[in-house]
Amino acid sequence: MKAIEIIGKGEEMHGRAYIPSGREEAGTIIKKLKENGFAHFVMLSCVDWIDKNEFELVYHMWSYEHKEHAMISVRLPRDNPSMFSMHELFPQIETYEREIHEMYGIDFEGNSRLTPFLLEGWHDTPPMRKDFDSKKFAEDVFDSIPEIKEEEDEGI
């Protein structure tokens, strides 16, 4: 696999390269891959591993040259997670970081646009974290709203 050759570590996973990386070196790895043909940034996803008490950021990159997919995985602690922003390498990372900041509460240093993206006026736990219970929230908030009480005679 080309990506593993370029970086010098990682394993193959169902035909895709999976490269674990530390928080600091991720920037260099992504930059190196970008220079070596991995020009398309597919997406940035985040997984909440609550039992291990960590978040996993997965940077997906695709190379049209080598027809290969690389996943760079960075693990962060669950309390006060923060990561470097990489929006200078690929502009669309800015949007992904905005979403992950909102949905998981991860801070991205260097991204000046971490404003609310999908939600408005949200003050609870970030909703995609595993310890946020969507069902309970929906019951608490929406089921507690009373029905409209109408008077008996429809005298309108």
Partner: peptide, 12 residues
């Protein structure tokens, strides 16, 4: 029905 972001009953 269990989503955190959709209102459930419009008539309210």
């Amino acid at each position: 029905w269990d989503s955190y972001n959709t209102v459930k009953r419009l008539d309210r």
